[in-house]
Nucleic acid binder design. Structure first.
Length: 446
RNA sequence: GGCAGGGUGGCUCAGUGGUACGGCGGGGGAUUGCAAAUCCCUUAUUCGCGAGUUCGAUUCUCGCCCCUGCCUCCA
């Protein structure tokens, strides 16, 4: 298997540190608000990677964090006049419900920042001891970026360029404008934890370094997240972990592309986002998963209703085939599909194999193809609905429809086509489309 | 300004040193009482522009144009 490593900007052969085992850390979300389609992409992408690694036989430890202490959380809680724990817990619940809907497996572990204070404090202390961090006049602990020689390796930036183009207001307590905070002094009415530097809370970057190292070891295989986290978040994670522990940190860095709207990044700050919850009111969550998997994970993905409609139609095509086949045993994956997935998780190419197989099955119900078809669907975790439910909706009273269908069938048998067509038209006005098959007439929602 | 990633048919999205995958859509045909679904054929003289390397480039190199992102929090 080959993966594209953002750190080297090369497609590399994937070779885990320990035979048969993979440690994978993915940056999760800050739990202050509902997740949008951009978040959905990370989660579906890494869920698919997680599943694929398991398919290849790896024993995968998949760790994805929750940032549950942060400025935005504090603000939001104050604004809504709710307890911070209440807010974060409700957002975690919402997140889990989104992930379940999208068919994402729960990671092996979902650590929360607030339950890892000792680890973070220990790492910060190590950084101070080794001369990579300092306590500034304001009492905050800062990371001295210039002490870490490889700073900028991941993002391909050099410190001097960063400074000249810096948009950051210079904090005069900092020795260098690029230094970032490891531990913030508590302000009144903010949640805080005791530390050697007084009551305070951790900076964002230290959370991920501390939690990933705690749960996966100081050196592990894969670190993933959205492209926007590359700098400064992941750059800082590397600087922290490597300086504190010595040695390497994550071996392979995987970054997924953004979800765009009208060629612009979907983001909270631009306000051009759709939450997952909003989208799945209109579309089955599987449509969103299909939409995400139809493009390579590193490419930009343009979100639009038309794009989701296309994804839905593709799914319809697949479900037509499933409806015809019924349930079937899963056999092995076709080699072309395996090759595509092994080539940096090329789901778009793999999807082409799925559709080719679909066409093959529509031509002839071949045992081999049938088993492969379902094996691919399992790898993608798609088509989990019963085919009839997909087209007709679940648990609805369809007796009125069935009655009209029967009436039309009778008319059709009697060759009273005028009546049959008028009944069919009547159903169509209700959004019901009929299909006459050798096995009889069936219907679906338009 | 620095850095990163893009520009492939009507839309979308893969890919390759020897004229291009799949999905959606359009056109034609088969099937059907007619449809729907499905199948077949068709829909890019060509992969942003210019030059170079090569027997041959969309794919490699260089230059240019355009787009997006990161450089503050961001998946």
């Amino acid at each position: 298997m080959h993966v594209y490593n953002s750190l080297t900007r090369l497609k590399e052969v994937f070779q885990p540190l320990v035979e048969e085992k993979v440690g994978m850390y993915v940056c999760g979300v800050t739990v202050y608000d509902q997740c949008h389609v951009g978040h959905a992409r990370v989660m579906v992408v890494f869920d698919t990677i997680y599943r694929w690694l398991q398919t290849l036989g790896y024993d995968v430890s998949y760790v994805r964090n929750f940032t549950d202490v942060d400025d935005k959380i504090i603000q939001r809680a104050q604004l809504a006049n709710v307890d911070i724990d209440e807010l974060t817990q409700s957002m975690i619940d919402a997140f889990h419900s989104d992930m379940d809907a999208l068919g994402c497996l729960r990671p092996s572990l979902e650590p929360r920042a607030t339950t890892h204070m000792p680890e973070m404090i220990e790492m910060i202390q190590a950084l101070i001891d080794k001369g990579f961090a300092y306590v500034c006049d304001s009492g905050d602990v800062l990371y001295a970026v210039r002490k870490f020689e490889q700073y900028g390796q991941l993002s391909g930036k050099n410190i001097d360029d960063l400074e000249s183009g810096s948009r950051v207001d210079v904090d005069h307590h900092k020795r260098d404008p690029l230094d970032f905070v490891l531990w913030k002094q508590a302000k009144p009415d903010e949640p805080s934890w005791d530390s050697p530097w007084g009551k305070g809370r951790p900076g964002w970057h230290i959370e991920c370094s501390a939690m990933s190292c705690k749960h996966l070891g100081t050196t592990f295989d894969i670190h993933g997240g959205g492209m926007d986290l590359k700098f400064p978040h992941h750059e800082n994670e590397i600087a922290q972990a490597r300086a504190a522990n010595g040695g390497e940190f994550a071996k392979y860095w995987l970054h997924n592309g953004f979800v765009n709207i009208n060629a612009e990044k979907m983001s909270k700050s631009l306000g051009n986002f759709f939450t997952i919850a909003e989208v799945i009111e209109e579309y089955d969550p599987e449509v969103l998963r299909m939409f995400i998997l139809s493009t390579h994970y590193r490419s930009p993905l343009d979100y639009s209703d038309a794009a989701l409609d296309d994804a839905k139609k593709g799914l319809d095509r697949l479900y037509e085939t499933k409806r015809k086949l019924g349930e079937a045993p899963i056999t092995k994956l076709p080699q072309r599909f395996i090759d595509a997935m092994n080539d940096d998780f090329n789901t778009a190419e793999a999807m082409a194999v799925l559709f080719d197989t679909c066409r093959g099955l529509n031509k002839s119900n071949d045992d081999k193809l049938r088993g492969e078809f379902f094996a691919m669907l399992e790898a993608f975790n798609l088509l989990n609905h019963d085919a009839d439910d997909w087209f007709q909706g679940e648990a609805e009273d369809t007796s009125a429809i069935d009655k009209l269908v029967q009436e039309r069938d009778a008319a059709k048998q009697a060759k009273d086509y005028a009546k049959a067509d008028s009944l069919r038209h009547e159903l169509l006005t209700q959004g019901i489309v009929l299909e006459d098959t050798p096995e009889g007439t069936r219907w679906k929602k338009a």
